[in-house]
């Protein structure tokens, strides 16, 4: 589904954001991307949805070479994936419903279908009752759920999230990760960049650890040993925290 082969990204001035990164994420897989600030997590995600172009290497997303994709085709690539950000990136002057139904509108669906899709997706994230609210009237967790609904409304094959719980308290973060797991259970490939060591410890999912732009650890498959998982977490610079009373599922 997502295939990175010796991908490097250098910025003007010589800064190396990514250096020879190679990994493969299969259809339906769930993986975390972790590492300290500046490790290259956000750059890697931006390469997937073609907000950036690699300096060298190959990136295949769903069989398409993202780096060589003509600019006019980028919107069509992005429609096959959902993207979630730490700062939600909702349109403040539009209601929750309008934010979620934006993509169906872009796709030219008729009004009834736009409404049905947006309503169903909002119901899935538990926010159907806040359709008419504006983003700034919602809590941080609710805003992030709206952002997830927006990412899901077109039933994407891939969901990428960049520090989606960075601005949320632990309880809201737990709810968001439960939502990601549920989305993944329905078949969507999920890649989440996070610093949250608690989540990395509790969820038995693959972890890709970046440090200084290099892929330092890849736990490769669900069910890796706790020691190896911990090694990946620590190697990435995330600090393990004491267990929380209510463990996240998975």
């Amino acid at each position: 589904m997502i295939h990175f082969y010796r991908v490097s990204k250098h910025y003007p001035g010589g800064q190396r954001a990514l250096d020879e990164v190679t990994f493969q994420l299969d259809r339906g897989e769930f993986a975390f991307l972790t590492g300290p600030s500046g490790a290259g997590k956000s750059t890697l995600l931006r390469l997937i949805f073609r907000q950036e172009i690699p300096t060298s290497g190959q990136i295949l997303v769903n069989g398409r070479n993202v780096a060589s994709l003509p600019r006019r085709k980028v919107p069509f690539l992005r429609r096959t994936m959902g993207v979630v950000f730490q700062d939600f990136r909702l349109i403040p002057r539009k209601t929750v419903f309008e934010n979620v139904s934006y993509l169906p509108r872009v796709l030219g669906l008729d009004g009834q279908r736009q409404k049905r899709l947006a309503y169903e997706t909002l119901r899935r994230v538990g926010l159907a009752h806040r359709m008419k609210a504006f983003p700034l009237e919602l809590s941080g967790g609710e805003q992030q759920r709206v952002a997830i609904a927006r990412a899901l409304v077109n039933q994407p094959e891939i969901l990428v999230a960049d520090e989606p719980t960075g601005n949320l308290d632990p309880e809201m973060a737990r709810e968001i990760f439960e939502l990601f797991l549920e989305i993944n259970r329905r078949g969507t490939t999920v890649l989440v960049a996070t610093h949250d060591a608690r989540v990395l410890e509790r969820l038995d999912k693959r972890v890709l650890s970046l440090r200084a732009g290099r892929l330092q650890e890849d736990t490769a498959a669900p069910g890796a040993t706790a020691a190896r998982r911990m090694s990946a977490v620590i190697a990435a610079g995330a600090r393990p925290l004491p267990p929380v009373p209510e463990a996240v599922g998975g």
């Binding site: 907000q51 006019r72 919107p75 992005r78 429609r79 990136r89 002057r93 934006y102 872009v106």
Partner: peptide, 15 residues
């Protein structure tokens, strides 16, 4: 900011 969001969700330049 809104335009960035539009672009990220897959809106074409014409749209």
């Amino acid at each position: 900011d809104e335009i960035d969001v539009m672009r990220l969700v897959g809106a074409t330049e014409l749209f």
